[in-house]
Design a protein around this nucleic acid. Structure first.
Length: 428
RNA sequence: GGAGAGCUGGCUGAGUGGUCGAAAGCACUUCCCUGCUAAGGAAGCAUACGGGGUAAACCUGUAUCGAGGGUUCGAAUCCCUCGCUCUCCGCCA
């Protein structure tokens, strides 16, 4: 949520900045809401004041044994008027709140302006792309021989679900453990285990709700109206740790990580990446979250990029880093780096990690603050990133580590996690 | 699943219809005193959102005692619904 005061004071500037990300700000309606709100609020508060004064007087006079019927008459008139005005005020406040909740974050000034992924800026390319002396296969062809079963996933659950078996399942597990170990032991994050089902408030806090409900899976308790949502990313539970908290600045930065499954309905992506396990309804990811002082968040963003890159470096996978342009960023982000890994079969890079600084956008929704030196409560900044997506990392390994006979070499960094297995054999 | 107890400010905890945003203690901040330490004294000390003020200081209002609704001129206090916590029993990975 952006600061309402920005809209009150600099609405034209906000409008122009939001237009860079393809968001049309309805200035007229906001101004109308605000004027109404102001008038109503003043009226309501005046009425409340006079009711409070009168009620107090009634108490005092009554205790003296005086007649209070005149006061009673007057206060009941006030109350009728108050009820009417107050209802109107509540309605307008809800409208304003809804309006605010649907506005995306404002991009940081360093973010390139653009309308689509084409305008994203490549910052760097790292790692060496292997030269293959044979015709490379994609992970679908390779995977089917070593335990990647799309048909079975489809039978159990439907499209975009996959079963992984045998040594490949071990590799998948090894990847998750490996990443979590790096992030905790080398990069200093606290390992967390969190719920995978979260409530409405949590998703509102990180920005998925109310706007993006169609991207989520919703569950219902048997026989109950209450619903819980499957997390679309570990960012949701981890970032919500600080919801409704006033944090001692000595505790900042808070660095959290968790290996969680992620559930996404992928409602808007029919026909995209239907082959293979690039885009699934369910996938695992090691999430990194930092809660930090506002003055530090851009340093932290760079630092977190390094934390994600480290995984790719240790796995010796070629990758590149992009700064997303204004038009390609997520709803809550002020600035986002994407890491893309090299996929030999497609001859292109595919997203494997995304690291974002949300500045105070989530913190405002979360009411996550810290006590500053001047003793005022100020909003903290939140950052999140993948460190990194497990399923896509596995796909990248299958493709980049393939041998001519269809076997997959296990990256050196993972062998110890694989009980010494160094090759996943297609012939087994 | 059954039975019971509870939810008040950073914490402990009083408050069962009126002048209560809320006693008291702890913690914290500033000041005073005492040559250190310890102890003592004074004041301050919730949050959000408004209005005034060029702005800061400040002045002022409203709301908030788990959440929502109700009764009432007036609710922390009474009623209803929900959430959460704790204890005991049962069940269970």
């Amino acid at each position: 949520m952006i600061d309402i005061n920005l809209l009150r004071n600099n609405i034209d500037e906000v409008e122009s900045k939001l237009s860079h990300r393809g968001f049309k700000l309805d200035k007229k309606i906001f101004t109308k809401f605000e004027n109404e709100r102001k008038n109503l609020q003043i009226k309501v508060q005046e009425l409340q004041q006079s009711r409070n004064d009168l009620s107090k007087k009634i108490g005092i006079e009554k205790s003296k044994g005086n007649d209070v019927s005149e006061y009673m008459k007057s206060v009941s008139k006030t109350n009728d008027l108050l009820k009417e005005q107050n209802d109107a005020l509540e309605a307008i406040q809800i409208s304003i709140q809804e309006f605010l909740l649907n506005i995306p974050n404002i991009a940081h000034e360093s973010v390139p302006v653009g309308s689509s992924e084409k305008e994203n800026e490549v910052i760097k390319e790292e790692g060496e792309k292997k030269e293959f002396s044979f015709k490379v296969k994609d992970h679908v062809d390779l995977g089917q021989k070593i335990g990647l079963d799309f048909d079975l996933g489809s039978k159990l659950s439907g499209a975009r679900f996959t079963v992984i078996r045998s040594n490949l399942a071990s590799l998948h597990r090894a990847l998750g453990q490996f990443m979590l170990d790096i992030q905790t032991r080398e990069n200093g994050y606290e390992e967390c285990y969190t719920p995978y089902l979260v409530n409405y408030e949590s998703l509102k806090g990180t920005g998925q709700l109310p706007k993006f409900e169609e991207d989520l899976f919703i569950t219902k308790k048997g026989g109950s109206e209450d619903s819980l949502y499957l997390i679309p990313t570990g960012e949701v539970p981890l970032t919500n740790f600080v919801r409704d908290c006033i944090i001692d600045p000595k505790e900042l930065p808070i660095k959290l990580t968790a290996l969680t499954p992620c559930f996404r309905s992928e409602a808007g992506s029919y026909g995209k990446d239907t082959r293979g396990m690039i885009r699934q309804h369910q996938f695992d990811k090691v999430e990194l979250v930092q809660i930090c002082h506002p003055s530090k968040s851009y340093d932290v963003l760079d630092e977190m990029l390094g934390h994600a890159e480290l995984i790719l470096q240790k796995l010796a996978l070629p990758y590149r880093v992009l700064t997303l342009c204004t038009g390609d960023m997520g709803f809550g982000a002020a600035k986002t780096f994407d890491i893309e890994v090299w996929m030999p079969s497609q001859g292109c890079y595919r997203e494997i990690s995304s690291i974002s600084n949300c500045e105070d956008f989530q913190a405002r929704r979360l009411k996550a603050r810290f006590k500053d030196n001047d003793k005022k409560n100020k909003l903290i900044h939140t950052l999140n990133g993948s460190g990194i997506a497990v399923g896509r990392a596995m796909v990248a390994i299958i493709e980049n580590y393939q041998l001519e006979n269809g076997d997959i070499k296990v990256p050196d960094a993972l062998i110890s996690y694989m009980n010494g297995i160094s090759v996943i054999k297609a012939s087994d």
